[in-house]
Amino acid sequence: MERREFLKSCIMVIAGASVPLSALTLIDPRKVLAANPDIQWAFLVDTNKCVGCGFCVMACKTENDIPLDANVTRTWVERYVYTKDDRRYVDSPKGALNGYTESRIDLGKGEFKEIDPKNVGKAFFVPKLCNHCTTPPCTQVCPVGATYKTDDGVVLVDRKWCIGCGYCIMACPYAARFFHPLLHVADKCTFCYHRITKGLDSACVNACPFGARRMGNIHNINDPITQLIMNERVGVLKDEFGTKPQAFYIGLAQEVR
């Protein structure tokens, strides 16, 4: 065979094979598994059931070694009070660590406001925590990749790699992140990953006496939480940011941000 012939045949073979071969795609098994994982954790808060006792905050801080006195917290409870003269008051002293035992509203700077109970139109509590967003802005902005999303949908922080720049704290629209007062790295709710992966409830779910906080696997259609999310009218916080939160709220008022 001459060289010219050989090259001609080679080109023909390559050209002929490239069309059917291009139809094939290489499949990364990890990608397939990630697209259809068995478990996708989701959180459900029933704001109608919350009484603001703060047990969840206490349980969370104790379980996850966040100093009780430190003014940061992985989960917190907000109190909303609407008066009949159309005023709105919100507070969350110490994240409701000790529960709402006082009726006066904390206005910051050491000032308080006592509201006449007759003047109260409506009032309710809203527990908050990390939303473990499907498209989390915090993991996107981490310059070293120290915070990441697990295959089962939980956003975690690598305490050994975090440089403490605070960019993730700035990027979170929910203020769910803070600097750990002792470790000096970014810290946030992990859905108690060390517990849920062993089949236990998270500390706050476990501590809630009224079932206001629940967790489930949203990829399991028979999971009671999945059923509730499917059948009830649920909302998420600040959906305008496009973060697709995985913490759902029953009875969410539009003023809650």
């Binding site: 003014n71 940061v72 917190w76 919100v90 203020a175 007062p181 000096h184």
Partner: peptide, 17 residues
């Protein structure tokens, strides 16, 4: 003392973190 606490003064409703 949490990072930021030394120079931040909060007024009205500011989220705990």
């Amino acid at each position: 003392e949490v990072h930021g606490e030394a120079w931040t003064i909060k007024e009205l409703f500011v989220l705990p973190n």
